[in-house]
Design a protein around this nucleic acid. Sequence first.
DNA 1: TTTTGAGTTGTTCGA
DNA 2: GTCGAACAACTCAAA
Length: 478
Amino acid sequence: MGCALIWFRRDLRLADHLALDAARRAGLRPIPVYIHAPEEEGDWAPGAASRVWLRRSLEALSERLRGCGSALVARQGESLATLRALIAETGAQAVYWHRLYEPAAIARDTRVKQALLADGIDAQSFNGALIAEPWTVATGTDAPYRVFTPFWKNARQRLADLGAPIPAPTSLPGIAFDLQSVPLDALGLDPPPQQPRWDAEFWQHWLAGEDGAAELLDAFVEGAARGYKEQRNHPDRVGTSRLSPHLHFGEISPRQICARLDSIAWPAGVEPDVDHFRSELGWREFSHHLLYHFPHTVSESLNPRFAGFDWAEPDPDLLAAWQRGRTGIPIVDAGMRELWATGWMHNRVRMIVASVLTKNLRYHWLHGARWFWDTLVDADLANNTQGWQWTAGTGADAAPYFRVFNPALQAARFDARGSYIRRWLPELAALPTEALAAPWERPDLLKSKAPDYLSEPVVDLRASRERALAAYSRVSAG
DNA sequence: TTTTGAGTTGTTCGA
DNA sequence: GTCGAACAACTCAAA
């Protein structure tokens, strides 16, 4: 029996795994491989939160493979050299994998594929992560899209021919070779032993791996899908799917999600909610589309008019205050602490904290993108980059320049009962709800009931808004 | 080629 | 308190 290396990267699942299925169809013994080579991802090697998730996801994948009679072979080192070594050790005639879309990954994978093909290896890559790959969607003049609505109008037609997800195998041929595998503990993914386990609380909220993804999808279709359009805006509720880290690591595919949504006879009133959720998957597609076609956007504004924008030079203390949730603006501090504690932040709050950083403080969006990159378990270069550029107003389909969030108003509107703020800022728990959104307006209450909290925001919201409007309007006027 | 309609997520102000 | 208008102009995408 010939064999095929299955090069696992961010497709850490057994169900709907096209590369694994290709080996099975070809009658080849699959040899599941994970190669740890973070330096090949350039400036955007996985951050700390991504690494601890990855560690657990690999463990989950490894267990599932063992349950099927196979195993995960983990290695460290340069990808091509490692694949070649494994080919030499096993006599593999094929290497199959799922494609990635980040600039560094594309360059690496292209090189690997060419080299393997030149070696006479059957090297094949598959789409396991997107509804429509970036080069398959284009405007009437064959240009990439820069506006979401026409992009999704076009791309969503592809939902119809996605096909059925491939069921997970229940058994797999054994590895049949005595292959050396690096223990997952040795990959340097967890914090070093002398460091505190800052991720301890993460795992009260998350179960990395395919099972965790399946649980969340079940919960979503039974719960939050109904009313999604409205409920998704409220950070104090389970109004979203929270599938983002699972999607990032490929523990579930968009095709699996869409097939599940389509399998349910939704009441007519719920269909708009479900469709809105599909469009959120569409935003993920759009982010990948933009990153693929405009790879410089990982560090530079898509809109060239922002090339010389008057960003403020960050004050390290202020940046740290934003990062660690000590701005004196409750909805911001709550969000940054949710992020620190759980590795995730509600999308509505991401927009608010990003607006404060890029508009009120007028710091370059990369400062925020970098912090999110290190602290989010769902850190994804496409989504993170486009999300920050959108909020900062530097993207092509960006928020209008005058759209500066008022964090107090946002808190009052979307956390009306104050339960999100109280949850993450226990030092404010004794304040009455009406004082939670803007406690600086109630100095008497703040002093008596929440003496440990900042008495004033670190940035004057009204004055900084005016300054931002002035700076942004100069860009708009050319 | 030109025209036309439209563009995720907001805030403030004044009637 | 509620509501509509102003905040701006530009670019995109398709007709």
